[in-house]
Simulated assay, not measured.
Amino acid sequence: MAGKKVLIIYAHPEPGSFNAALKNVAVDELSKQGCVVTVTDLYAANFEPRTTRKDIAGALCDPEHFNYGVAAHHAYKDGRLSCDIVAEQQKVCEADLLLFQFPMYWYSMPAIMKGWMDRIFCQGFAFDFPGFFDDGLLKGKRAILSLTTGGTAEMFSSTGVNGDIRRFLWPIQHGTLHFCGCQILAPQVSFAPDTSSQEERTKMVEAWTQRLATIWQEEPIVCEAPWYFGQ
């Protein structure tokens, strides 16, 4: 798929980690296809995850009461968001596919990645009212989560101690990415790499590589409650 643009948002502090290996495989495979791949390495960039007044240049729309969402919306419309936010938003604008690579922390994503979404996906840029879910402002883009877990696949099954892993992805896939208009591809979950054998880890990497080879032909999931919670 020559000419397609991919933005990988990567969150892991260790360059030698399994997450890093999955990220590197994605860069290599997608680049071989002729895609233009950009990586935002959140830890390497020392990305600021907090939403603060520093995100807005100049005067606040309501200096007496700081409401981040409202202030960021006004700043976006006026072209007064901080340069790091603007740089990431430009990458998102150019991307056909957003790929999030991260380890699951407490049934969610690392705080630094959550902060990236909080700051980058502001009103006016990623969504508006109206302009959300199927009409979100990122409509036409695809998004996929590639994540690792501490628990095994059995632990994250419908009968396992944690329950079906799809339940934990509802806030990220549906509540954030789909809300902003993205079409969601089924997640790539690498279960328990830290406690797996080298052979098992190799198979996980190979499975990801094989999937990436045909990623552009995949149909998005129906990103509604039944996919996550059953009928």
Rank of each mutant, 00 (worst) to 15 (best):
E154F: 12
F132I: 06
M104K: 02
F125W: 07
L138M: 12
Q198P: 04
L60M: 15
I8W: 01
Q33C: 03
F191T: 02
A26S: 15
P171N: 09
E94Y: 05
G181F: 02
R80M: 09
M117F: 15
T209P: 05
N19M: 02
A75C: 08
A95Y: 00
T202Q: 14
E64D: 14
W227R: 10
V36S: 11
R142I: 07
P130A: 03
G124P: 00
A126M: 11
D118F: 01
H65Y: 09
G136Y: 01
P15E: 08
A57Q: 15
S158G: 09
G58E: 14
Q217V: 11
K139S: 12
G230D: 09
V39M: 10
Y68T: 12
V92G: 03
K141Y: 03
I85T: 03
G151S: 12
R119H: 06
D164M: 03
L98F: 09
L7D: 01
R53D: 11
V70I: 15
D128S: 14
L42F: 05
G58F: 13
W216P: 01
T149C: 05
G16L: 12
Q89S: 04
V161H: 11
S190I: 04
A11I: 01
E218G: 05
E224T: 12
G3L: 09
L22N: 01
D128R: 13
L147A: 09
Q123V: 10
A207F: 06
S146P: 04
F127L: 13
Q89R: 03
L177S: 00
H174F: 05
K91V: 10
Y76M: 09
P15I: 05
M113E: 05
R167C: 11
T38Y: 09
C180N: 06
F125V: 01
C122R: 07
P63T: 04
E218Q: 09
L97W: 07
G151P: 04
I120L: 03
Y105G: 00
C223M: 02
D164H: 05
I112T: 00
A186D: 15
F191L: 10
G175L: 04
T38L: 09
T51W: 02
F156E: 00
T40H: 12
G16K: 11
P49N: 07
D62V: 06
Y76E: 10
G69M: 14
E48F: 05
R201G: 02
S31I: 04
I215G: 00
C83L: 12
G58V: 14
L7V: 04
R142D: 10
D78W: 07
M104P: 00
G140L: 08
R50A: 15
L98V: 06
A45V: 06
W106I: 09
E88I: 00
D55G: 11
W106R: 13
F156L: 10
M104I: 08
N67W: 12
I184Q: 00
F18P: 01
L137E: 03
I184W: 00
E224Q: 13
H74Y: 12
T209D: 15
Y107D: 09
S82T: 14
E94M: 08
G175C: 06
G136F: 00
I221W: 07
V205I: 15
K23Y: 06
